[in-house]
């Protein structure tokens, strides 16, 4: 059996890759995908820990996270679509009317 900490380290690496992607990429859709990667890294952590502890809380949590993530993506895509209709760009650096 693969030991739990292998999963945890893999999840931490995926989470960091997602976080890095959020920071360096400028395309709103790619940023979305990176956020999804972060969420799925957490899901992997939760499942691995649920297995380690032998209780189901972590597994249940994963289902809830998936449902929330789906709702969130629906809203996010709707907002991005509305912007594309006005401005024909999904580059977050060109969405810059509001500035100090």
């Amino acid at each position: 059996m693969v030991p739990t900490h292998y999963y945890l380290i893999l999840a931490a690496i995926i989470f960091s890759m997602g976080a890095l992607g959020v920071l360096v990429r400028r395309n709103a859709l790619i940023i979305f995908m990176c956020v999804e990667m972060m969420l799925n890294a957490v899901n992997l952590t939760l499942v691995a820990l649920a297995n380690q502890w032998g209780n189901l809380s972590g597994q249940v949590f994963v289902f809830i996270v998936m449902a929330v993530a789906a709702a969130e993506v629906a809203i996010g895509l709707a907002i991005v679509m509305a912007i594309v209709r006005h401005k024909d760009t999904i580059n977050v650096e060109e969405i810059n009317l509001l500035k100090w």
């Binding site: 997602g18 957490v42 952590t45 969130e72 996010g76 509001l98």
Partner: peptide
């Protein structure tokens, strides 16, 4: 207003994922 929404959303989604971790 759309820009307000997309900025709020992107920060919020990342903050939510970090909190979840």
């Amino acid at each position: 207003s759309q820009e307000a929404g997309v900025k709020y959303f992107l920060y919020g989604a990342v903050a939510g994922a970090v909190m979840l971790y």
